[in-house]
Design a protein around this nucleic acid. Sequence first.
DNA 1: TTGAAAGCGCTAACAG
DNA 2: CTGTTAGCGCTTTCAA
Lengths: 329, 329
Amino acid sequence: MRKVKIQDIAEKSGVSPTTVSRYFNRPDLLSQETQEKIQAAVKELNYSQDNLARILVTGKSNLVGVIFPHLHLSFYTELLNQLIKQGKEKDYSFIVYTSHDSKKEELELIDKLISYRVKGLILLSHILNSEEIEKLDMPVISIERPGGNFRQINNDNFTGGKLAGEQLIRDGCEVFIHINNGYHEDWPSFKRIVGFELSIKDRPKEICIDEKLTDPYSEMASEAIQSLLNHILREYNGKKLGFFCSNDDIANLLQRECIKKRIAIPQDIEIIGYDNSPVSDYAVYPITSITQNISLMARIVIESLDHYIPHESVVPASLIMKNTTLSPE
Amino acid sequence: MRKVKIQDIAEKSGVSPTTVSRYFNRPDLLSQETQEKIQAAVKELNYSQDNLARILVTGKSNLVGVIFPHLHLSFYTELLNQLIKQGKEKDYSFIVYTSHDSKKEELELIDKLISYRVKGLILLSHILNSEEIEKLDMPVISIERPGGNFRQINNDNFTGGKLAGEQLIRDGCEVFIHINNGYHEDWPSFKRIVGFELSIKDRPKEICIDEKLTDPYSEMASEAIQSLLNHILREYNGKKLGFFCSNDDIANLLQRECIKKRIAIPQDIEIIGYDNSPVSDYAVYPITSITQNISLMARIVIESLDHYIPHESVVPASLIMKNTTLSPE
DNA sequence: TTGAAAGCGCTAACAG
DNA sequence: CTGTTAGCGCTTTCAA
């Protein structure tokens, strides 16, 4: 299958393998004449480099590993999309894994990545804790994960939650409901709740946590949101409700139930999502959402691979007004 | 960074590097005693293999390249999801690219994959034609692409379209509309249209093609579907309409417009999508859809990597009844 | 401006 | 059951 190597084109063009290597890496060191000879041979034999051999000897790899919890959330697929797109310019290639599973399996995945000599690891899954990550003998860039002595890129979740609360207040909501699929106090996304609660002060509120919402495309999730909505409607009959959801997919799920119940959006119920992902635009009523600026996150990731300095970056959050909140006068 | 190699643990355990190598590849050839010695050393030094070196010498790689047109379609992300999941068992790792772009860029991507010595290439993009693919010096598995002398895995699109048409007839639709983002007669998905048209015979029909629907998450797409629906409603006022969309995302887009116009689904309009992807379940009225059996496709892909024999596989299509068509008595 | 030699980390003969 | 030797395809000294 693969046959033509540097040796072959060395012979063809009457120079040494070293010179051919230099043609690719330091062409400026070669005479015009040799360059042309080599170029001709490369074309004729349709030679293409062997990156593995090169990585082996130089120790410099452009392979990057990415581990997602799953791919059923727009935030993840959009981030992947941006990583691939922006990584292309710097010649990075991404090995993608998902890890729904055990700690043991995640460590095996990472080991496999190491065995492929990846330049770094982009981590979105929540299975490993900080100490375990710090033990890894490679650059790790975590996204929306609890901190530690590695590179972290997080959204300004606090401001995100605060912006949501403020908007709902401005629009005259009387009860404030946060829907989330689970939280830990050390997760960056926990700050959304903090910011939200702070902004609504002592107004009536409900914080609804349900792990069934983790995979919003499941039937379980659908049922969970249904009974949640029923509960809230019963409890706060006649009041204007302001919902703040931990992601757009959940917000969309909620909107769907509201439509089925013929509740007027945004007159009787307002909804604010998180991520400003395609689904939020794609919903029946495009969903007002907090943007995480995924493309900026991706850019910082790529940059961090080149210059790895463990610390946290916070990417600003902002409110994107759409049709599930009142439009400003 | 990376230091401990086979040599180190050979010294540590007092055997030759070869023996250590055998410990990983043919442990059955070693005595119990040596195995234990080596195991101890491996643990102590926290050794992990170097796959690149191994690929270099054996010529056998478990890296697989995947090229998608983009990642904004559930069919793509779900396929990727399944590939990663099912590939894990056979120890495959996937390098993922998207290629919105030029033929030149796509060939560069493929060249890069070759330079990483991938075992094979999974191709979903439509940029290269069959001859160009055949020229590639590696196993190529194409999915939903025109054929050629390589491995193809396609859905039984003809039956898929036919099933959709038959259902709409059964439900009493009077006008039959197919919505598509574009087609070529040699694409497998063209057969959906053929099967659909055949099943509805001489009944009133419209075949609507609009490239703006290619990325259904764009604003353009949204506007396109809106004016399309307006046109149809004007033209066939009072008739029951049966829509067959080329994918679930478009079907969802269409449903959204129907809801806004307060058209009764499935009484006045029926909608059938394609892919049976998460969005179809996630829509306000879960969308009746043709399943491509993505997980089966993924399984065949994985299988084909091990036993590469150029030919076409056709994966059966079937109709999944949900809420945008009448439920059977 | 070019080449010879050594070696990246590993495994496949072949031998014992 | 284990070790010796050679070499995967490339780059990096060092020397000319």
